[in-house]
Nucleic acid binder design. Structure first.
Lengths: 105, 105
DNA sequence: ACCTTCGTTCGATAATCGACAAACATCGAA
DNA sequence: TTCGATGTTTGTCGATTATCGAACGAAGGT
């Protein structure tokens, strides 16, 4: 549902997460750095997952998040491109980053 | 703010209103037909106005609503185009219509 | 002046949301 | 098997949201 996706992306932190994943690279949950508690981050990732924006893969005790770019592009042509472009220009969710893969939490 | 616009458009009724106004034509408030009370409709129009999506012109005792298409296209290139295309395909907010200009309320 | 129309604003209510800490579940390592 | 690391779930808080009906204020018409 389009409205679901728009609601999911109408939060700066979630949009920041999407920006971070925009290169198509899978990211480890533990790499993600956002100015919220981990339970809140888990919540945001669940919202994105439930809206069909991201996919989560579990591997042992840790999991990896990925943007469902091709699915989104099929269902909502041009939308992510337009969105990511504006979000980058305005640096929305710029406080969401990724730590080095071997960085301590 | 992008997130503000996304939040504004994440409601089916508001997206329906935007679809209705997508042709650039100005519409009389009284023409608008949505399955909500008039106070609720007023609220939705205020949300769209405050997000910079629409403009309202008052003329005497009635007012006219218009999509700020060129402003939106300048600020958020390609966004409305992508959004309106998907919304049309999925018929989101299809229960929002416009009555004939001389129709009774 | 009075009434009507039009849209906004005001409460009220129920639902949802973002945030946190704390408890929990799972899995690998020691 | 005990421990530690990793995410999720739960409970709670305050803020926001969608909705309604009713009251309101501004114009215009009678």
């Amino acid at each position: 549902m389009l409205t679901r996706v728009l609601a999911a992306l109408s939060d700066p932190i979630r949009l920041g997460l999407v920006r971070l994943l925009a290169d198509g690279q899978e990211r480890g949950w533990g790499e993600l750095r956002a100015p919220v508690a981990k339970s809140t981050l888990s919540h945001h990732l669940k919202v994105l997952r439930d809206a069909g924006v991201t996919r989560t893969r579990q591997e042992g005790t840790r999991c990896f998040v990925q943007l469902r770019r091709t699915d989104l592009d099929n269902r909502f042509p041009q939308l992510m491109e337009a969105l990511l472009s504006v979000a980058a220009t305005d640096d929305i969710g710029g406080d969401v980053t990724a730590a080095r893969r071997d960085a301590p939490r």
